[in-house]
Design a protein around this nucleic acid. Structure first.
Lengths: 346, 346
DNA sequence: CCCTCGATTGACAACGTTGTCTAGAGGCTA
DNA sequence: TAGCCTCTAGACAACGTTGTCAATCGAGGG
């Protein structure tokens, strides 16, 4: 296929290049480049001829080649746990908005809480030469990122700290939020309070557990180990864990649910029981105010987490190289009723 | 900076290339390429030397260059309305999973329901030479995509049909679902039913309106135009639209809410009124069963929409070139109570 | 009329990878 | 030992763009 032939009838699947545009417009390659990029030094007449050729051929600049040449991809990577989780949607969107305001695209992937998959995704993004990474860690050892960070891939961790790597991190005050939640229940007369949390290898789960224990200790209350469940995340296991606490030998009179999915399941479980049971959940969720009783929660601002992280990232990309920061965002207890239910002694 | 120097101490921000690995291992460039890609024809000893050099330098293949050379990016683009919307999270995740199973990454962006932004995003993705596109249209004219589609960018539209362009499309049965919803209300004795829908330029909004009218007509019921509200999407306007219908001269006794966000707002409005009002919402949402009364909805399977679309897309990428398909997925009426509330005559 | 200067334009190399092709080493057969 | 074949390995071009630099042209000044 000759260049002339390409200029008029191209094969399906192959796209015209600047060379094709150039030969059709009767100008040099570099002139096309100048027109495409709006660089000065092209007469209006030449520019018009080039524009016509561009339109006629349906030319669109190949950014792969541009990226290769320029060394910057104008894209950032986001690795999170699960896009379908309502907590991460707003976070992702917030990161996207910041990226957009800096002219960057967002490539993202879900780790499904699997460290191997997290690593695979992160390294795939590095191979694409994303300018920076926002990572919600699934694993607890990120040393595999060291060569990448050393090579200049700006990296910010969100929601959970990185393992074994010194980098920017943006967290919620999980410890303080959990303390507030449990203190709220204690203030309403509860002494036996259960905690249904996430996998123990997840940092937020342990921080929330720590907050739970601290609040209990601060009130001089003992914690029976049968009141603590970790790692039950699927609805069925959450259900049986909660039921065991409520019907056990030392029955709890209130529950603190460790994340939004756990809360939703616990709400269902409690709804089936004859007597009301107090509940505070970590993470706010839509309609929490419309369930009866309305659910008291410790709210994190997911969008703010994302915005803050992306902001830090672009700060790094702008060349600011001060030591890694650790930002902790406050949580907010939203009392809606379910936390004020007094203890019910069966 | 000499090649030797690069091999030992590289400048921050510049990464080693295959050339660096090759000179460090004392082999040719192509041999490194072979090792990196697991191609045969390398003796174990040579391979070991190359691997050592790779590890020592922290080499990672530059996929930008690879993409440029191979012509395939192994990435697909997804343009949707808003990632923070709980309807799109699962859809996005489903597309991602299909992409992953085909070894592709997902680049996505939110159009924020703005046609100009949709076009900007789509064309940016085309410039990146994504292999294919999944688009949830915001605009109604997609002729700007014609050169891209002609050039081989496989494109599938989801949730709403494309405008002026012949391409694969995956939809929910919005018309049928709306009919079901309204018929359900009619079956429970309602004769004056209001519809609070999305912007009229959105295809799904018009289809649902059409279903509403068809169901009313099928039951021989007149529709007072004060019962139809289109375009009120923000909570404040939905609130006043619903209130106007409920308190107007021809007050409605039931409401059909046109999408998940509208439904949530309407639930709030109804919760503040003394007497119960029947409601069916389009789109299911978490906790719809826990609100009192539990909300009857017409459910779409967002994940299935995404899976189906991505499946069609990869079919095209595998070279199957039959005429564009239009797939319509069924909706499901989930009766939970709010639709069975009988008419209350104030 | 010649020289200079600024503006416009294009030739060429480079970005880092992969596909093609060829060279060389070594083993086997006749 | 010659001839052939297989296997390993590297040289080189190409992908489509952008940065550098040099060439050309017209205008204006001496």
């Amino acid at each position: 296929m000759t260049d002339t032939a390409r200029g008029t009838a191209r094969r399906y699947g192959s796209r015209p290049t600047m060379k094709d545009v150039a030969s059709r417009a009767g100008v040099g390659l570099k002139t096309v480049s100048r027109v495409v990029n709006g660089e000065p030094g092209v007469t209006p007449d030449t520019e018009r001829r080039v524009q016509e050729a561009i339109t006629a051929l349906g030319f669109r600049r190949n950014d792969s080649a541009r990226i290769l040449r320029k060394g910057r991809t104008a894209s950032i990577g986001l690795v999170l746990e699960d896009l379908a989780d309502p907590f991460y949607g707003p976070l992702c969107r917030a990161v996207e908005e910041v990226a957009r305001s800096h002219g960057a695209l967002l490539i993202n992937g879900s780790s499904a809480e699997d460290p191997a998959r997290e690593q695979e995704l992160v390294l795939a993004l590095c191979a694409r030469r994303v300018d920076g990474l926002v990572v919600i860690p699934a694993g607890d050892d990120h040393r595999y990122l060291e060569p990448e960070i050393a090579a200049g891939v700006a990296t910010v961790f969100v929601d959970r700290p990185a393992g074994q790597v010194d980098a920017d991190v943006v967290l919620s005050d999980n410890f303080g939020g959990a303390q507030d939640a449990v203190a709220h229940l204690i203030a309403h007369g509860h002494r036996r309070i259960g905690f249904v949390g996430d996998q123990p290898r997840i940092h937020t789960a342990m921080e929330r557990l720590r907050g739970y224990r601290a609040a209990m200790a601060a009130a001089g209350l003992p914690v029976d180990e049968s009141w603590v469940s970790l790692g039950a995340t699927d609805p069925e296991r959450v259900r049986s864990a909660a039921t065991a606490m409520l019907d056990g030998p030392e029955p709890v009179t209130a529950l603190f649910a460790g994340n939004n999915r756990v809360t939703v399941t616990v709400v269902r479980v409690l709804g089936e029981r004859p007597q009301p049971v107090a509940l505070v959940g970590f993470d706010d969720f839509e309609l929490a105010d419309l369930v009866r009783p309305a659910i008291t929660v410790v709210a994190q601002d997911a969008a703010r987490l994302g915005r803050t992280a992306a902001g830090l990232l672009f700060r790094r990309l702008d060349g600011i190289a001060d030591p890694p920061r650790r930002v902790e965002l406050p949580t907010r207890l939203i009392a809606r009723g379910s936390g004020e239910i007094p203890p019910y002694e069966g």
